[in-house]
Design a protein around this nucleic acid. Sequence first.
DNA 1: TTGAAAGCGCTAACAC
DNA 2: GTGTTAGCGCTTTCAA
Lengths: 343, 343
Amino acid sequence: MEKKTYTIYDIAEATNVSPATVSRVLNGNYPVSKKTKEKVMAKIQEYNFQPNSIARSLSKKETKMIGLILPDITNPFFSSFCMELEKYAQKKGYTIFLCNSMNNSEMESVYLKVLSERQVEGIIMMGGRINKSLTDTEEAAEVLEVMKKIPVLMVNGEMAGVDCYQVRSDERLGMKMIMEHLVERGHKNIGLLGGKQGITSTDIKVEGFKQLLLENGLVYYPEWHIYSGFSVESGQKAMDKLLENKELPSAIICMNDMVASGALVACNHQQIDPKKFALVGYDDSFVADILTPSLTSINHDYEKLGTVALDLIINAKNEQEALDVTKKVTIDPFLTKRNSTAR
Amino acid sequence: MEKKTYTIYDIAEATNVSPATVSRVLNGNYPVSKKTKEKVMAKIQEYNFQPNSIARSLSKKETKMIGLILPDITNPFFSSFCMELEKYAQKKGYTIFLCNSMNNSEMESVYLKVLSERQVEGIIMMGGRINKSLTDTEEAAEVLEVMKKIPVLMVNGEMAGVDCYQVRSDERLGMKMIMEHLVERGHKNIGLLGGKQGITSTDIKVEGFKQLLLENGLVYYPEWHIYSGFSVESGQKAMDKLLENKELPSAIICMNDMVASGALVACNHQQIDPKKFALVGYDDSFVADILTPSLTSINHDYEKLGTVALDLIINAKNEQEALDVTKKVTIDPFLTKRNSTAR
DNA sequence: TTGAAAGCGCTAACAC
DNA sequence: GTGTTAGCGCTTTCAA
């Protein structure tokens, strides 16, 4: 079974050329006569030779690998992004190194180190430490250390004192789209469910929510605003709590589709027709389609998020000299209307 | 910004030892005097030195990377497996190289090549070409070629003529658990929705379904058995079609949770109370919890699937000599009962 | 316990 | 156009 694995030397020898020439036909970056080229190609075919990209990486000091650190690939938001990122990376000749931190800061640290040792050419971070409103100094220091060697990009997050590449979907705008949609549907009493204080994405939405109520001449009722988390269960709990109120809103915005799912579960448990409320989610994951009623939600435009992120990080090297580099890009989300807010 | 990145030579020089010694303290595999060890460690700290694992890989001819090729990480079945695999791999000092083939055979080929060039130490395949009942010769040949160099493991799939490592959750047993559960609940009329003929996982379940009906003295009604696919929409279509029948089953088994979701959507559209049917899904993904009613489903035991798969592939190298290696392992799934089949 | 040196497979000057 | 050769950064005999 110890199959001999061929090197360019084997090919060179068998073809009576030098290893350099083999390398040249392999890379096509230097002129090689048609004749020798064909000769070499033939042997490569014959031997089914595959270049060792480890050796190439060492020699060229480039790995064509991008690291992606996220909390949990099981979450549709992250997997959707991952998918789009990889799709685009593939086109660009890059390959993605996926790291699930399991929502654990220590794991993030471990992976930061692993990726650095593996010489990835860029690191994209999502969730976890970059999504806390209050930056932890230790955690920031680690990222800064890595940034000395490798460009870092954060998706929908940031850390105080860490000046890195950023791509974010405009959650303030997303909230505005939701609000306009609801107002247009005649809603005046609107509740907000889920999320956690201190998590950036939540804080942005909450702030937008309050401000937009004001702008639309509507009132913010604290009892209709319930923090709970990001999971289905948290959504269920939040909805249960909301339903304890005597006065209820006519529309409910949820921090993500999971929370909205939980809200629906709560309604069903309590034998309350969910159509009583206009319900809106966030992330526009595939669950939005399977819920009853199907869920109106905000789409982050995953494709754009992915392509922009990759472009930024790939170009980071070249851009380092340029002074006017746009390091932070904001992507417009869009609203997908479904039955949960139909008239 | 062109930050000098240190090598063991820098450390060696600064410490007045040889690079070899630095390597030894880094790896801890050879005796080093306590004194020099501490000296070296200190410098490593000071310089914040990180070994280049590309160089190490080239020298040691080991990458500690395992490739994972699957159709779509967005699908909870695959992401759940991926998560468990990575969790265990991390413990074992391995790292996962994720490849989304986007359900595209050519992409599978591309990734097979990429992983091979990148010198991964094992390749785990799921879905795609290994899940067709009729093996494509070309596709098999590619896999066989790779197997000359790298051990390959297939999860819930196989290819005719390709003798590789295999881990599968026993879908025949899963079907039996479902059937027993339904029979115990008094159901005699059972339908089967979704899947595709020619896809192994479907074929196994269908065959089991028919046989188990027989064994339980029940009748197979072709009009209650509707192929459609694996998506939510396909489930909806299948259910719509099923509902055209005059006589309806009292229980419905779906090929996966997505199809079951679609079935529920169809019921809701048609204003039919889904509680009229006992509904069972497959995969036990998180959607099972958010549906109304919550969905009874078969869990593949992702953790076991992941750990067994990794162990097999990691040990492949050593085991090559042993003649009696168990190359194929079957994992027992388990039934998670929820409201959709409650009395 | 430590150092010298060869080598992992490929690339890229530099010659010719 | 093509060959020679010196690395890339680390590991690992072999000697000392």
